[in-house]
Amino acid sequence: MASIWEYANPRKFIRTTDVVLPWVTAAAVLCLVGGLIWGFFFTPEDYRQGSTVKIIYLHVPSALMAINGWLMMLAASLIWIVRRHHVSALAARAAAPVGATMTLIALITGAIWGQPMWGTWWAWDPRLTSFLILFLFYLGYMALWAAIENDDTAADLTSVLCLVGSVFALLSRYAVNFWNQGLHQGATLSMDKQENIADIFWYPLLVCMAGFILLFLALVLLRTRTEIRARRMRALLARERLG
């Protein structure tokens, strides 16, 4: 079997994603449309929360991808540090704005949900606060990428920042928990799901989560392709200058 590292070759990556990307995109659209319609129109209203509960189909999957987006960046950064595959660094760069947007969606849908439930748009609840801090980490990471001209230098520096940032994001999570026990309901996504949320809400949520995962994948693949092409353009320009 071919080694997985073959896909670290940009040309191989572009060729493979040429084939894969349309399917992933189609699957993402299918899951999202299906899951959201199922969730919004074909589930009963919660007896306490009314129809507001339905925002869960956006809120939970986006929150999931906000965290997994960062984890993906961390993995890609580690691969860059250890094996120095350019595609890996570019994938980390590509994932950051998507992850940041997911974080923002989670924060905004959370606020919209929180307003009728808790009577406030924002509370300094540990989970909300952690997501806000995560958003700041995303911003810093993207700003560092944008500030440095040399691609390899930028990849090196952002990788180390991602590593250190991950540790401190985790620390912040626990610090925030320590600082304020919150209003937020317990985990929606848990092994013993029966305790948290009924099946009838659970299945469409699963579909929506699959949809968000696929959407994230599609966007990251698309953006990585763009980054690879931009990088190729810079390499060609550099070669031009050499004459």
Partner: peptide, 10 residues
Amino acid sequence: SLLVLPLYVP
């Protein structure tokens, strides 16, 4: 500042 302040949170 943007890079360091989030690290200062804990």
